[in-house]
Amino acid sequence: MKLSRSQILEFLSENGFIIIFIIWCLFLAIVTPPFRSISNLMTVLRQASIIGIVAIGEMLIVLMGSGMDISLASILGLCGVSAAMLMVAGWSLPAAVCAGVLLGGLVGMINGLMVTRMRINGIVVTLGMMYALEGVGFVLTKGQTISGPTVISLAPLSRGYFGPVPVPVLILFFFYAVAFYVLNYTVFGARSYAVGANERASWLSGINIDRLRLLSYIIAGLLAGFGGVMQTSRMGSATGGMGSEFLFPILTAVILAGVSLSGGKGKILNVLIGAIFLATIANGLILLNVPIYIQKIISGVILVLALSLDRLRNIGGRA
């Protein structure tokens, strides 16, 4: 079948970053043989797991036209710290994990209530929440690193293997399978896309937008909480500022995936690919022995390249 120019542009505009991703992977596969090993693939996926899981929640917020949730990385940090402290305080492992995750959901609910009840802009609410939570994290830890043998007992969650596959990678794929199903085949998913595309028309179609949006913030909070527990498990310890390094990767994964920042458009599997892409950039640059500051520059260039291909469609004009 012959594709027209506009169809190709359309495809590129939604999936263009994948082409850059593939080129980058091919490049790495050729120049650094270690990149090709299964164990390295698993390393990459493991590195993508936390960002990928939290990005599901971020995608949901963006998809529903709520702007962005800037507080997710801080929720991650707070929940990681809380889980670690509860373990130190002698809570059982499942109890501490659940408490960490639920705490994330609670913070998400506070975000959601401020957005839906008080009608404060979502970006403003979560920006404030980000600062507040970082403060809370440092107050709780008193600036110390929380660690100890009980914290290390969390390790299987992120360091364990199931056959050849690391546990976090299994968790990652499981979450994406669920998210894919929910977004594409359930009422909740259908309504999320509708609300993001046209809030007024959705409301007039009987969709309780506030309830749906509140739910999206809670889900995003729960996922961020889970990400926090995983990060504590990975590090074997927790610090007050442990979330901040995740802020930009989470947003980048969603933006790379081409999720429309005005809502209503986006593919969940592209977010997964976006998260993995980010991990391969870091992984590849380390394998190539690129100095740390140069790594940042190259990361920036690759990201801009990937995003610019996405925007090809707009070259024709702004009609």
């Binding site: 199903y181 929910v182 085949y185 359930t186 009422v187 909740f188 259908a190 309504r191 509708a194 959705s202 179609s205 009987g206 969709i207």
Partner: peptide, 14 residues
Amino acid sequence: LPILGKLSGLIGNI
């Protein structure tokens, strides 16, 4: 869109 609820199963699957 207005009747998705009626067209769905137990877990909200359409």
